[in-house]
Amino acid sequence: MSSSFDKVKSTLPYLGVGLGLRREVAAETFEAGHVIDFLEVIPEQYLCKGGDTRERLNKARASMPLVVHGLNLSLGGASPLDQEYITRLKTFVQFTDAPWFSDHVAFASLGDLYLHELLPVPFCKETIEHMSRRIKMVKEQIEKPFLIENTTYYMSMPGSDMTEPQFLTELLEEADCGLLLDVNNVYVNSVNHGFDPFLFLDQLPLERVVQIHMAGHLAKEDIVLDTHGAPIADPVFDLLRYVLSKATVCGITLERDQNLPPFDEILAELSAIKIITAEAKQAKTSLELEKRP
């Protein structure tokens, strides 16, 4: 890694295996604090809000480390960055004491119209220029390590003339930020667009991965949808094993937003991820020992 980001990454703490905090299961989440290493909070769910919502955030902050995962920077959007949002986001990131924060390679608003979805951008040089400029502005203002997440895209955008790994690699380099690698998104895209997800991972600068997202999807007849509403599928676990054999990361988060199962099932998924993490660590240690003279 020949960037300033390697220095940044080396200062980040190892957080372990965490969970995206959701209102519906907040009580169970806090109760299971001894087996959840950290929580990922979505600022949009807390900004400008008091009452119960603020109470939940305070409780989360008091119980475990937090990372911040935003939805609405709209980094790929053509409308100007929302200064009001960034100012509030900065206060939020400071309040949570998160070691890093993240958002998506997507557009989420058109002017003041909030679209309630992360929408794709054209994979081309111009988008890289546009997005990296915006990412640098965000980094400068919020003054915390910043990660961008690879998203799902169900249609390729007109104007795309690069592959997704080419696009992400150049964007990460140009913006000099970290990658939040959503392994489920890689899998979903690989099915929808017919590529080999392992080869895809080989083409990414995995040394920039700070955090990993794990989630479930919904396979329909003609398309796979990234719903965060089902258990993690086996091929996604395989991809996680592959990434962990090649990269060192600071945290893995389970995202479950819909179709919430009994909380024990969520805990079982966290523990499956922990086992894979431990095995990867073990394998790396053995390899290093073997290499020693």
């Binding site: 400008c48 949002y85 608003s109 119209l113 909030y114 309630h116």
Partner: peptide, 20 residues
């Protein structure tokens, strides 16, 4: 009608869910 409505009524905190 939302795109038109949001265009005509700028709210600084448009990212709040309830604003929909």
């Amino acid at each position: 009608a939302l795109p038109q409505l949001t265009r005509n009524n700028r709210r600084p905190d448009h990212f709040r869910m309830n604003n929909t």
